[in-house]
């Protein structure tokens, strides 16, 4: 009962903070709002019994990625905030209307998904006596070994790319 209320409150906080992210004039305020969204989603993950994902969300997203964002905003020193005011041009209004239609379509599509996908039992993992982290660990080093290795290559490419792109030209 109390978890239902917490879930709904956290959801409302996430939506308000997300709106604040896209509507703030100052990029620093946007970044802080995005951190609020990510923390709210981490609470949601905890309520959905995904402790490992919740902690990873806090460390990777709210920690690493957002610190990177704030660093870059400070580095670029985007002085004149007025420049980023949102004007209601015709393109923006059309975009907002199209986004609303897209939202309706997403909701309709999401409700038409049935939870009884035929053949999904194949993918069920026996979770008896195991916690979430253990299940992920088992799957990561057996069925998902190749994707795991590929992800390490992606991260290496990311590191090298960031260094090369951020380097000062002589």
């Amino acid at each position: 009962m109390i978890t239902s209320y917490i879930t709904i409150i956290v959801g409302i906080v996430a939506v308000i903070a997300a709106l604040s992210t896209v509507l703030q004039k100052n990029p620093v305020y946007s970044a802080v709002s995005l951190i609020v969204v990510m923390v709210a989603l981490a609470v949601n993950y905890l309520l959905l019994n995904a402790e490992f994902i919740a902690v990873i969300q806090l460390i990777v997203y709210a920690g690493a990625i957002m610190v990177l964002f704030v660093f870059v905003i400070m580095l670029l020193n985007l002085g004149e905030v007025k420049k980023y005011k949102i004007e209601a041009t015709s393109g923006r209004i059309a975009g907002a209307i199209l986004t609303g239609l897209f939202f309706l379509q997403l909701v309709v599509a999401g409700f038409n998904v049935t939870a009884n996908v035929p053949g999904i039992e194949r993918f069920f993992i026996d979770t008896k006596g195991l916690d979430n982290t253990k299940i992920i660990g088992h799957a990561l080093f057996s069925d998902y070994l190749l994707p795991f290795e590929v992800v390490s290559i992606v991260l290496i490419v990311g590191i090298i790319g960031a260094v090369v792109l951020g380097k000062k030209k002589e």
């Binding site: 939506v15 992210t21 896209v22 999401g110």
Partner: peptide
């Protein structure tokens, strides 16, 4: 499903109406 759709559409909206690269990235 509803919460996820709302957050996704707010992201799409932000990408469309903002011209600041950093906020589009967010």
């Amino acid at each position: 499903v509803i919460l996820s759709c709302i957050l996704f559409c707010i992201g799409v909206l932000g990408f469309i109406i903002r011209r600041n690269l950093l906020i589009c990235f967010m």
